[in-house]
Simulated scan of single mutants.
Amino acid sequence: MIFLINKYLNCKIFNFISYRIIFSLLTSFFINLFLGPYVISYLKKLQTFQIIRINGPIGHFNKNQTPTMGGILIIISICLSIFFYCDLYNKYIWYVLTIILGYGLIGFLDDYQKIKFKNSNGLKISYKFFCLSIIAILIIFIMQFNKESNIYIELIIPFYSQILIKMNYFYIFLSYLVIVGTSNSVNLTDGLDGLAIMPVIFISFGLGLIAFCSSEIHLCNYINIFYSKQANELSVLCASIIGSGLGFLWFNTYPAQIFMGDVGSLSLGGALGMISILLHQELLLMIMGGVFVFETMSVILQIIYFKIRKKRIFKMAPIHHHYEVKGLSETLITIRFWIISFILLLIGIISLRVHNAI
């Protein structure tokens, strides 16, 4: 679309990636803002209400009239923004877009199962995990066959820019874990109004900043990131995620008028994982996405400890429910998690350069 605008309207402003980043963010934001009320109204008519876990916090039962599957709105705004402002000849864009649409479809089926059978379980975990894995593995192998360099990958270690770990075929397995793991981590975190979407916005900003610098060789050498002519286009895509996330937060903040559902959380998590792989910043994602890591670890530790000791570490998992049960208000928990996520974003950005600066 940007090439048609440049050709027929002679609008050279879109030749500059900085302008496309701004327009991408604003477009996805206003699409959400405009379509939001209509989507909420339509989902209410379809009675696509959130199915509340029976063993979840008691206070959540008053949310059973809030429509879910709002992730459809997020995906639409991101895809439209990508179509308008991204270079569609860039293969990196298509890798991320495939994950967004593929994981979004799986999330849609999961949400549909919950609503249809009035059950919070949705798709069988094994079937859901299998579908997520198939898409991730397919994309990873396509990437390997179309890669400019050989199979050996250098993994950047945050805070230690002089140390690069060379990896061979194990990198394929690592990439798989990053995509599927991040997707499920965002899904687990999406349990309170606005809790998951703000960390997604922060991480998208961090990854977008790295992508923007990735095509400048001098900047790459200075802050220790991989040089790639194609990766900077991901900054426009990250901007669309930020804009869409802010637009969705308009309706998702407490008290939420709509939830993103699995269709939103799985697609956004998968997209973040995919972008971090393309930028070779998988370990940095773990720092900036520390809230997601913490939420996931709380579930894993709870399960393992209960099987061994028949006791619970937390009153309820994921960890945000633990604080709810302890009596903290939903807004207090959410805002504190936002603050932690922002601090982790800053730490992640600092880690790119800190070792060279010493």
Rank of each mutant, 00 (worst) to 15 (best):
M1P: 06
I5M: 12
K7E: 14
L9T: 13
F14E: 08
N15G: 13
S18D: 02
S24W: 08
L26F: 14
L26V: 15
F30C: 12
G36H: 10
S41W: 10
L43H: 03
K44Y: 01
I51D: 01
T66H: 01
P67Y: 04
I82Y: 06
Y92G: 03
Y95T: 07
L97A: 02
L101N: 12
Y103M: 15
L105G: 06
L105V: 05
D110C: 14
D111W: 05
D111P: 11
K116F: 03
K118G: 01
S120T: 00
S126P: 05
K128F: 11
F130D: 04
I134D: 05
I134K: 11
F145E: 14
N150F: 03
L155Q: 05
I157G: 04
Y160L: 12
N168M: 06
I172P: 01
I172V: 14
Y176Q: 06
V178I: 15
I179E: 06
T182S: 15
G191W: 03
G194M: 07
S204K: 04
I210V: 04
C213E: 06
E216Q: 01
E216L: 01
N221F: 11
Y222L: 15
I223V: 10
N224A: 13
S235P: 00
L237W: 05
A239W: 01
I241Q: 02
I242L: 13
G243T: 01
F248Y: 10
N252H: 11
Y254V: 03
Q257C: 07
G264K: 04
G264W: 03
G264L: 03
L279D: 06
H280P: 01
M286S: 15
G290H: 10
G290Q: 05
V299D: 11
L301V: 07
I304N: 06
K311C: 02
K315D: 02
M316S: 09
P318F: 01
E324P: 03
E330W: 04
E330M: 06
T334R: 05
T334V: 15
T334S: 11
R336V: 04
S351T: 10
L352V: 10
R353K: 15
I358Q: 09
